[in-house]
């Protein structure tokens, strides 16, 4: 039976018992102030019993820990399957595997006629109704990770700087030195532009989960469900969706992948500047 019911019954029965004591005990044994106190306790227990309807997950840890930061779980929120194609978490005795499906939609409304726009909207409506079991469809706007590109630009700049130094030391022709300096200015401009502008990427994906008594069972069912969803999405949109694997999965799960490290320093300094102004 659900743990929720036990918690509810515990508080409810306690509330009733306290109320019976308050109501049935004669005033000679239990004076009116004590009865009032018991009534208050009974009402509090009654409210707690009702709260267990939604807040069982909090009530017990709250009572056990009695601290200002209640730890519901100290474990990682998930882990990846061995094939790195599913996200797994434990729920009670069961395992839940979740598969992410990338939907490559590159069409823009600006290049569609009215009929095509209507058709597109209908396809989206149809997409949402594909799966009988719960599935989630997401449009995600995230900042592009430009770490690698910025590093490449910095490497190029230091290479061109070395080239300039060598030319100056070896008394190279003024024309060559000018050309290298021009090249250096160009790469610096590109780096400034790339570092100063936030680039966003809009991606679409679907998510489906399955429950299993064993980890491999949950993964297997989730992958099966995902394959069914893949064919549904493919036929509805005329695109080739794919199951997301490896590190790319983190783009859809972890908040720090929405705003990669390269853009943070720039964003924070911008915020600080705005605050100062």
């Amino acid at each position: 039976m659900d743990k929720k019911i036990f918690v509810f019954l515990g508080f409810f029965i306690s509330s009733v018992v306290v109320l019976i004591i308050a109501g049935s005990a004669p005033l000679t044994i239990l004076p009116a102030p004590a009865k009032l106190l018991l009534l208050l306790v009974s009402m509090a227990l009654d409210i707690l019993a009702f709260s267990s309807r939604y807040y069982t997950y909090l009530l017990l840890p709250f009572m056990q820990q009695r601290s200002s930061n209640i730890v519901l779980s100290n474990e990682d929120a998930y882990w990846l399957s061995t094939a790195s194609d599913s996200v797994i978490r434990k729920d009670g005795e069961d395992y839940i595997a979740t598969v992410y499906i990338r939907i490559p939609v590159y069409r823009s409304a600006t290049e569609m006629s009215d009929d095509e726009k209507l058709d597109f909207s209908r396809r989206v409506s149809r997409l949402v109704g594909i799966s009988k079991s719960p599935a989630r469809y997401t449009a995600e706007l995230h900042m592009m990770n430009k770490d690698y590109y910025i590093q490449q630009l910095r490497d190029t700049i230091s290479k061109v700087e070395n080239e300039e130094v060598q030319l100056v030391q070896n008394n190279g022709s003024p024309g060559d030195i000018e050309r290298v300096r021009g090249k250096l200015a160009m790469w610096h401009n590109i780096l400034d532009h790339i570092g100063g502008v936030q680039s966003f990427e809009l991606t679409h994906y679907a998510t489906v989960s399955a429950r299993g008594a064993k980890e491999y069972e949950a993964v297997s069912i989730a992958q099966q469900d995902a394959r069914e969803l893949l064919s549904g999405i493919g036929s509805t949109f005329g695109v080739t969706p794919s199951i997301v694997t490896g590190k790319e999965l983190l783009n859809y799960i972890e908040p720090e992948y929405l705003i990669p490290f390269s853009t943070i320093s720039e964003q924070i300094s911008k915020n600080v500047q705005e605050e100062v102004i």
């Binding site: 823009s108 409304a109 600006t110 569609m112 726009k117 597109f120 909207s121 949402v128 109704g129 799966s131 009988k132 079991s133 719960p134 599935a135 989630r136 469809y137 997401t138 449009a139 995600e140 706007l141 995230h142 900042m143 936030q198 966003f200 809009l202 929405l258 705003i259």
Partner: peptide, 23 residues
């Protein structure tokens, strides 16, 4: 589709729009 694109273009921070559906 156009209203959605226009709205997305005006947003300068990361976000996700989720539609969870069940038959």
């Amino acid at each position: 589709p156009e209203t959605w694109e226009r709205a997305v273009m005006n947003i300068g921070f990361p976000f996700k729009y989720h539609v969870l559906s069940a038959g």
